[in-house]
Design a protein around this nucleic acid. Structure first.
Lengths: 191, 191
DNA sequence: GTTGACAGTGAACGAGCGTTCACTTATACT
DNA sequence: AGTATAAGTGAACGCTCGTTCACTGTCAAC
């Protein structure tokens, strides 16, 4: 039996991603197939010694690194190492990485081709944050003549306009006002 | 006082995203500024009545929708609605949406321009899943002559080759074997 | 064969949990 | 003024939690 630890840890991880919380010792009894809580206690003790788990101030198991976190390897040209047992890898949590202000963050689907030269294509998902203002060069979702579009926001002096990232469209110079709706934080394309 | 519920819920959400678990009633006492657990009890009762929370079989608070989930609005041309109080919005969890097999999923940074015509550019982050095989048309990370690259995987009959998404590079026809390392699941670009 | 380490059982214990009860204070409506 | 409704206090209660203790079986080492 190579490494019992990882098997137990995998079951805990699986429980966590289903229930969004850590299992209690009684629940782990069922999870591991034990009939005694003490058996669980000893297993957990080893997981902690191995640095694969932690407890909080209530004695409850805490989600540590590797719960919701994904190994962040180097670049594409480096490829994937054969074994990823190494704990010296950096790890990232998608939510923490992409979402700053959760309450004002939304997701939208892209449905035009006006930002194609910025490599944002139809069908992509965009993560945006509600805002009324933007800085020059940011990509925004704005309302122009009652219609919403995604464009580069440009500002020079007190002159503002919108610029598509597609040569076949023209920049938009607002006559009166320009209602910024949100600024782009991230693009997500799923395959 | 417009809606006390949302304020309390926001504090719980904040606690959850920091501690990756729900607060206990005692912790909520501190969180809300109460000196009695019963005050918390009544607040929680209302949150449940309002459908903003649930309890599990232990009586503990459960993370419900809206914990780690982001409102998924329509398309960009639809813009962002003024109020998002409506509970009829679809919501998505980034992790659940993007990660299928957590144990074999990794993140890499893109560092070439060979996939630029597929709108994957230098600096993008890619979510990949370790694999030895792929289907025709999928984007893969493969090893060719000791070097790793990201390319389209092509297969016709028993002939396989790699195809860049950039006219200035040539397709790669492997002489002996072709080591597929991983297949692309998603592209993430952060601004 | 004996010993020691390890893994698991089963029962017990204190602590903290969620919950309930009785009571007080404040707000709003007749 | 009088009264209902809601919000908060503080103490109590049972239940489940994590933890501990004593014990049994198993396997390897010497």
């Amino acid at each position: 039996m190579p490494n019992m630890h990882s098997e137990h840890q995998a079951k805990i991880e699986s429980f966590y991603s289903q229930n969004k919380r850590m299992p209690t010792y009684s629940e782990m009894m069922g999870l591991f197939g034990f009939r005694s809580k003490n058996a669980v206690f000893k297993v957990v003790e080893k997981l902690i010694d191995a640095g694969l788990a932690t407890k909080d101030h209530l004695g409850r198991l805490m989600p540590t690194q590797a719960f919701g976190e994904i190994p962040l390897l180097g670049s594409v040209t480096a490829g994937l190492p054969a074994t990823v047992e190494e704990e010296l890898l950096e790890r990232v949590n998608l939510d923490d990485m992409l979402i700053e202000k959760k309450a004002s963050t939304f997701m939208l689907e892209v449905d035009g081709d006006s930002m194609i030269d910025a490599h944002i294509e139809k069908g992509d998902m965009v993560l945006v944050e509600r805002a009324n203002t933007a800085k020059d060069g940011q990509i925004v979702i704005a309302e122009v003549d009652g219609e919403f579009t995604m464009k580069y926001f440009r500002k020079e002096g007190n002159k503002v306009w919108l610029e598509p990232a597609n040569k076949k469209y023209q920049p938009i110079y607002p006559e009166h006002s320009l209602n910024i709706n949100a600024v782009l934080k991230a693009v997500i394309r799923k395959y």
